[in-house]
């Protein structure tokens, strides 16, 4: 489903990713952990096609196509979703309206029929139930005046409605209290399916108590330095990232 090979990326003249390789199969949940500044968000941004993130070497194949050749909106239509570490406010644009515009733009790009407002509302109602989000959020402008937790939950809600094939969650757990964290995790778990894959970027092991990953990778210095199952996350929790630097061998292309 997703094959990243020897990815090098540069931001603002600085090399951030330096030979990152990773393979994700359908239905798998991969956790990416790493210290601040390791390049975790950079990976998410490169995969979603943000301007200013220059790929200098390597390749990303998604569903058999060259993902890096697509515009951001085309990647979204192809099923790639990024839950932002810092969701953006769009004043005056109604949250529901935004989401419907997004869904219909994607459907149109895929040659599917657009949803009318009744069909869309029905879909939204279903998803609201699963996500345990109050529909009051729907009537507000996109992320405007949302608390940190509300923004993160809104990201997951968007994901639920857009039903991506590859979801990248960038520190969706940061800034959440334990109840909100459980809700987010429950939302993600509800969306797990044999066809849908997740890249769960996190700084802490905590989230992985609730979203059980199939694989855990440690990203440091722009590459995956250690990969393992969920017990790796526990080891990290116990020993800290310094432990990886001392003990971990760069895992290279075998991740």
């Amino acid at each position: 489903m997703l094959k990243i090979e020897n990815l090098h990326a540069r931001v603002a003249g600085k090399d951030i990713l330096k030979g990152l390789s990773l393979t994700v199969n359908p239905g798998e949940v991969h956790a990416i952990m790493g210290p601040n500044g390791a390049g975790k968000s950079t990976l998410g941004n490169v995969l979603s096609g943000r301007d200013g993130y220059e790929v200098t070497a390597g390749s990303v194949t998604y569903d058999g196509i060259d993902l890096l050749a697509l515009e951001p909106e085309a990647r979204a239509a192809a099923g790639v979703f990024l839950a932002f570490q810092y969701p953006v406010e769009i004043p005056g644009v109604n949250n529901t309206y935004f989401l419907r515009a997004a869904l219909n733009a994607q459907r149109k790009a895929r040659g599917e029929k657009e949803l009318d407002s009744m069909q869309f509302l029905k879909l939204v109602r279903e998803k609201l139930k699963v996500m345990q989000i109050s529909d009051e959020l729907l009537h507000r402008a996109v992320n405007e005046g949302f608390s940190g937790g509300e923004k993160k939950r809104n990201e997951i809600f968007q994901m639920a409605v857009l039903e991506p094939k590859l979801a990248i969650l960038d520190e969706t757990d940061s800034g959440l209290d334990i109840d909100a964290l459980k809700q987010v995790a429950q939302g993600v778990n509800a969306l797990r399916s044999p066809e849908r894959s997740f890249l769960v970027i996190t700084h802490y092991q905590r989230l992985l108590d609730y979203i059980e990953p199939d694989f855990v990778h440690v990203l440091a210095g722009g590459r995956i330095v250690e990969s393992g199952d969920k017990t790796l996350a526990l080891k990290l929790e116990e020993h800290g990232y310094a432990w990886v630097r001392e003990h971990g061998e760069p895992a290279g292309a075998t991740a």
Partner: peptide, 29 residues
């Protein structure tokens, strides 16, 4: 902002539509 544009585009909304959506929001009042 580039952030707003990218946010819209990452959700599947093309650049021109994103601009008019942001402008529309700005004019809502």
């Amino acid at each position: 902002s580039d952030d707003q544009l990218f946010y819209c585009r990452s959700r599947g909304i093309g650049e021109e539509d994103a601009v008019s959506m942001i402008v529309d929001g700005f004019c809502k009042q």
